[in-house]
Design a binder for these strands. Structure first.
Lengths: 144, 144
DNA sequence: TTACCTGCAAAGGGTTTGCACTTTG
DNA sequence: CAAAGTGCAAACCCTTTGCAGGTAA
């Protein structure tokens, strides 16, 4: 697959939008940053490289990137959005109900579930989200 | 399993909380309502039977009910919470991206995924959400 | 040049909270 | 009664938007 940056340029052009310093920088930070950033943390990191970028631009850019399919927004039990650049492979999440830690994982069983469901219901599957909640190893230990 | 109402009484007693008209009514409405209500719609329905109940109480009660494990909050791509009384069996959702239709289903494979994950990461699983998106049979036919 | 984009600050909308009053146990 | 719960309204926090000035194409 093409690099995120190339995909950004292509998608912007295709949708008649402009390539700006802010949009490139925001996607760049998102792509290299830790897996799930919220808007204000993303804003803070972006500001380390360009202090003039506003939070409003971060939100507006995130909306564009989501629309272009380059970024995905999760609300994993949180009360606010977490953003993540989309990688090649689908992946699923575990979140700790106590400390909020997120563990990503993948499993072929989801595809199996999709197949069974598609066959039984005659549907076409586009995407599947799997969210497991519970307590991580540290928090389990802490509450004993 | 005991009725929701009995479970409510038990859980409230066990946690040293009081049983109030508001709490009973809110859970009752939630239990009979459509699958996913947001806080203000829930408030509206509750008010049909007791107009004096405030939105603040709805939110406070929802927090209690969640803590007691009687109600579950979803944020399936929405920007605000949707609430649902927890029934006996876990169930998963398919939603049609075109018409919004929801199909509920169940599968033992989710449990398998939970076991694998718990073993590998040392976590304790409380609950798992599975959301499949795509196009239902009718909408697939309609777009051909 | 001219849309599109950005920064700023103010507005929005869902959710939470301080306070005085009410109700449960 | 004492403590927990409620209603009201204001506060909160994340997110969106109007506007005037900037910038890509």
């Amino acid at each position: 697959m093409a690099s995120l940056d190339e995909r950004l340029e292509d998608a912007l052009r295709a949708s008649g939008r402009r390539s700006t310093t802010q949009r490139r920088l925001i996607l760049e930070v998102l792509a290299e940053g830790s897996l799930h950033l919220d808007a204000s943390e993303l804003h803070a990191r972006v500001r380390e490289r360009d202090p003039s970028i506003s939070l409003a631009t971060v939100y507006r850019t995130l909306a564009v990137l989501k629309e272009l399919g380059l970024v995905e927004e999760h609300r994993l039990g949180q009360d606010h959005g977490l953003y993540e650049a989309i990688h090649d492979e689908p992946h699923y999440h575990f979140t700790c109900l106590r400390c909020g830690k997120v563990i990503e994982f993948d499993t072929p069983l989801v595809e199996l579930i999709e197949q069974e469901l598609a066959e039984r219901e005659g549907i076409g599957v586009t995407r599947t989200h799997l969210l497991v909640s519970g307590y991580c190893a540290e928090c389990r230990a802490a509450t004993h």
